[in-house]
Design a protein around this nucleic acid. Structure first.
Lengths: 129, 129
DNA sequence: CAGGTATATGCTTTTCAGAGTATATACAAA
DNA sequence: TTTGTATATACTCTGAAAAGCATATACCTG
């Protein structure tokens, strides 16, 4: 297990990451909020740390864990190649702008469609399983 | 295995997805390009199809597979909560613009920052069939 | 029809990640 | 020191996923 993808495949690890978005947390705090056993938390934190998702500092007996950015960038970079499939570039730009400044949408609502790959009219068209 | 995260945790599946970015492909074409055995390809395609990453149409004896956008959107949405950790929003916008049109950077350098994810706008969306 | 091609699926084996339990280590407080 | 707290780690067990191999299914061509 080494790829960032495998790291975030585990639900508990994703929960931990989401929890750390708000602020750094100790193992015990994570343990209580997510209701996992202490060894389980520590193990997942180890995996996350070795993968570069988190780092920790010592505070007496506790360890405070916080997020690190690199792996998230990697994920985003991987996603780049697919972006044109879930919305046109313009759409993505709009979504992006909404994210940074949610103001009344510009009426750039021009019907946009069939932007994807133009495959030839399917013949059998049976999707089936 | 049901979450989109588990689906893309498998390297061969990611390879298939990347391959389908260029255009739809038949099982045999994927098999040859990625040098995997045919059953392996079919099995991974099944997983990808059931998870909504791809869809297929019939062309005589072959099946043509192509990407579907939804799961990628989900991944992107999940990443949203972490975006503020790997770059400022402005940086992200610049990177985005470079991606769609790598021309001399506009000096849109207005400082904008710490403006948490808002989003959750496009719901009906649904471009592409 | 027979034979060839393309793909899906069933079965088996192997590997490995995750959880549980117990224990080790480190620090703190009395 | 002794005791309590916080965290890490070792060991074992279990389940599930991936691959290989064989085979079934579907369609095409002669």
């Amino acid at each position: 297990m080494e790829s960032v993808f495998e790291i975030i495949a585990e639900p508990n690890r994703r929960a931990i990451l989401s929890l750390l978005v708000s602020s750094e947390q100790s193992v015990g705090e994570i343990e209580r909020q997510l209701r996992m056993t202490q060894p389980t938390v520590s193990k997942h934190l180890r995996v996350l740390r070795e993968a570069g998702f988190v780092e920790s500092t010592v505070d007496a007996q506790r360890r405070l864990y916080r997020l690190k950015p690199e792996p998230f960038r990697q994920l985003d970079t991987w996603l780049d190649q697919f972006r044109r499939f879930w919305s046109s570039h313009i759409d993505a730009l709009e979504r992006y702008l909404d994210r940074i400044d949610p103001s009344p949408p510009t009426k750039t609502k021009t019907e946009r469609r069939s932007r994807g790959p133009k495959r030839e009219r399917n013949k059998g068209e049976r999707n089936e399983n």
